[in-house]
Nucleic acid binder design. Structure first.
Lengths: 117, 117
DNA sequence: TTCTTGACCTTGAGTTGCTCCAGGCCGGTA
DNA sequence: TACCGGCCTGGAGCAACTCAAGGTCAAGAA
């Protein structure tokens, strides 16, 4: 697969994929004889995972560490598991923040309604 | 109130408050005779709202517009209401993203477990 | 066959939204 | 009077993209 398809499948932009690769977040991207990137299904799955991790606020440093472990093979699975569990805990915190903000917005909107009445 | 107290009450850092003020996000910050900022309760409430809007991903441009309307007085309440409703819709989208990511993480962790067994 | 188009490449600059630091002022305390 | 903490400003640094310039190459149209 070429980069445009990798982008549309993973959700990341083309520029972002190139940037991530340069930063070591995407191991094993092959190149065709023309020098262009070729993405395997495994690459796409990995990019998709990165997309969701980014979308939910994982910092690049963590992704870098995660990618480095991934590149090292299966014996790093316990470490990777730790990272994902950790992120999952962050998601819970974020959900809590959303709830809190919802409350605040609801209260504010109530005040506006009161004023507009 | 001085800036350190404004920071601890709103959740924003001191530097962030100064930055926000410089960018026009915080109308009507008074100064004492010594040139130092004095924050009213209204300022604090406003900063706290900004804290939650930022925390949940509102871009600065939107906050800027929101602040400009706020500074113009009560007749802009309908516009401000629109902005908050809009943001509230974004929060729903974000919650959906969190759910989606949770699923993906759960699936990934399952695969890891399978491997570690 | 030459020309154009489109997708890709690299390098480097620009943007957003903070965050931190240097250097300076001022009021209170030892 | 010397020091301290908290405040000030201006400007540099940073994270994570995002975009623009300039170039290559394959494929199809004229």
């Amino acid at each position: 697969m070429r980069i445009s398809e990798a982008a549309s499948r993973s959700g990341l932009k083309i520029d972002t994929i190139r940037y991530y690769e340069a930063e070591g977040l995407v191991p094993n991207v092959a190149r065709g004889g023309d020098g262009q990137r070729r993405f395997s299904q495994e690459n796409i799955d990995w990019l998709t995972l990165l997309y969701w991790l980014r979308e939910t606020g994982m910092p690049m440093k963590v992704m870098q560490r995660f990618a480095a472990l991934y590149a090292q093979g299966d014996e790093t699975i316990p470490d990777r598991k730790e990272i994902l569990l950790d992120h999952s805990r962050r998601l819970a915190k974020r959900r809590h923040d959303l709830d809190r903000c919802d409350e605040i917005l609801a209260r504010k909107l109530e005040i506006y309604e009161e004023y507009l009445k």
